[in-house]
């Protein structure tokens, strides 16, 4: 067996070690890669860039800690953009952890951008997943009747503590929808919220979920999409707020290059072996 042929039987431990080392080392340098934003990320950016500042942005946060790597990075990048443009926003979600996690990130950023809870942003909190269609339908018709109270149990009609709720009544006052989810909940958002007034919807799925969303991009029901960690990375580049995704971008690229190299190398070995077998047959 020649060296070339041995390339198709590299021990798996060496493969694992290569992945460990390449990702580990790629995480250390701080200089980010240049970003080539995809069309979907760019149109997501433009949707928020062009949103009127006197309208509300609703963030549907239907994710949990297990997909934080992707959904968390997407959310933070978008929060940066919203706060930079001083767009008021409301958080809600159908995963018990989602709104809580987003609100925690929003609180961290609020100090930097001088955002006030109740005036510039609000957390409507979590609603049980089984009630998603009914909740969204009711929410669209009127926030006060549909959502009733925020996550701290303050009634939305309490305009002293929540002054922003005096300005925003229903779907007509919404400028952009942002839906961050690793699951099918986006279908309800499209059907019951986006579809009512054709409000622009920015979709942030995990990479696994992204293919299911293309038909909605085609039909214009979604204006833009951030695909998993790559989408977050592109968005961080667009808002010029390099964050976790940007720092991990190199590692992401390196790991993919490693897989590609391994596949190429394996096939070289395979072809070499095939050629030898052929020539041996010829002789024998």
């Amino acid at each position: 067996m020649s060296i070339l042929e041995k390339l198709q039987t590299i021990d798996r431990r060496i493969v694992y070690l290569l992945l460990f080392l390449s990702v580990g080392l790629a995480l250390i340098p701080r200089k980010p890669l240049p970003v080539i934003p995809s069309n979907q990320a760019r149109s997501a950016f433009e949707a928020i860039e062009n949103a009127p500042t006197d309208k509300l942005v609703i963030i549907g946060a239907d994710w949990s800690a297990s997909t934080r790597g992707e959904n968390g990075a997407q959310t933070i990048a978008i929060l940066h953009h919203l706060m930079k443009r001083r767009l008021p926003f409301a958080i809600m979600g159908f995963d018990p952890q989602g709104p809580e996690l987003v609100a925690a990130e929003a609180e961290k950023l609020a100090k930097r951008y001088n955002y006030q809870y109740g005036t510039d942003w609000i957390n409507w909190g979590f609603r049980p997943p089984g009630t998603i269609n009914a909740t969204l339908k009711a929410m669209v018709r009127g926030f006060q009747e549909g959502m009733k109270q925020d996550s701290k149990n303050i009634p939305l009609s309490d305009h002293v503590r929540l002054p922003m709720m005096a300005r925003f009544k229903d779907i007509n006052d919404v400028g952009v929808l942002v839906v961050v989810t690793p699951s099918q909940t986006f279908e309800s958002w499209v059907a019951f919220v986006q579809g009512i007034k054709g409000t622009p919807l920015v979709f942030c799925p995990t990479a696994v979920m992204a293919p299911e969303a293309y038909q909605y991009l085609d039909s214009g029901q979604m204006v833009g999409m951030l695909t998993g960690l790559k989408g977050a990375l592109e968005y961080e580049g667009l808002v010029k707020e390099p964050g976790r995704a940007t720092a991990q971008g190199l590692a992401l690229s390196v790991s993919h290059i490693l897989i590609i190299l391994l596949i190429v190398v394996g096939n070289l070995g395979y072809l070499a072996q095939k050629r030898r077998q052929k020539s041996q047959q010829g002789v024998g």
Binding site: Q8, R12, V15, L19, S255, L262, I263, N267, Y270, L271
Partner: peptide, 16 residues
Amino acid sequence: IAFYIVSAAYRAFRVR
């Protein structure tokens, strides 16, 4: 799974 996906790809993706 990241490790397993790499070794599975390396092993299975051949122009067989």
